[in-house]
Write a protein that binds this DNA or RNA. Sequence first.
DNA 1: CCCCAGGCACCTC
DNA 2: GAGGTGCATGGG
Length: 304
Amino acid sequence: MESGQLPMSTLPGGFDLQSTLESGQSYLWWRADGGDYDDEPPYGGDAWYCTTTRATGEPAAVRVRQRDGVIEWESTVDAEPVLRDRLRLDDDLDAIRAATPDDPLVEASFDAYRGMRLVRDPPFASLISFICSAQMRVSRIHAMQQSLREAFGDPIAVDGETYHAYPTPERLAAATEAELRDLSLGYRAPYVKRTAEMVADGNDPGAMEGEPYEAARESLTRYVGVGEKVADCVLLFSLGYLQAVPLDTWIRKTIGEYYPDCDRGNYADTSQAIRERLGGEYAGYAQTYVFHHLRHGGEVEQRA
DNA sequence: CCCCAGGCACCTC
DNA sequence: GAGGTGCATGGG
């Protein structure tokens, strides 16, 4: 077991582990206390876990927590590069905020969750988890991913505890639709199975990274259960397209209330309009702050 | 009983 | 391309 730590002062713009992991970006981490992500912050407990894959292909778990100005971790692997990658610790939040237009709602949201970062989830797990997210509450999306891991993920034994890796494409492709429905996936069950089959057959969802944004979004919608919104989530929270602005019910409501001129009647044009309003390159960062802020009842003092 | 949740597939026109 | 419908499940 290796442990390590990193002072937050080395991270440009700071870091807030809890808001990063509880802002509805990633459903692949879980709390050591088993607590529900819809509990009101602050989480006074201890640590979060994620899993990663060794060079040998064997899965491993990483335990992380933040306290007294440091991020600290324990794992059977060298976790620092994993955490830098998965939690985007190298993003310069000050520069990102500086590149984001002044706007009362965006400013209030950045202020409320200083240090929140985007995540970089592994592509297949991101894809499946956001297929599961359709018409579903944040806490239940988490619960579904937990169920999928426990039912189909390779076990990871650590200190007498057993955790489970996220299932492989092959394993989910081999699951029956009935088995998936038994995990309360509902009508998403066949989507998960068919998409897993596509990935297992060689269609790597990470392969379009580097393509132009709109082409990449189009490519992702080939997967079953993936429309424009889920595609934008995978682009933003896994493939590093920081300009992507997923139009979910919250953001649509926000557009109606704060940016009505950005409503262009269809997804692609509205998405482009709000993307430009939020500054383009890092629009997805601003969107994620606003989403998290409004979902926790935040408002803005003064309307533009 | 109702409505809603980080929507999508499928069907018309 | 735009517009309607059905869809599983659980919580308020």
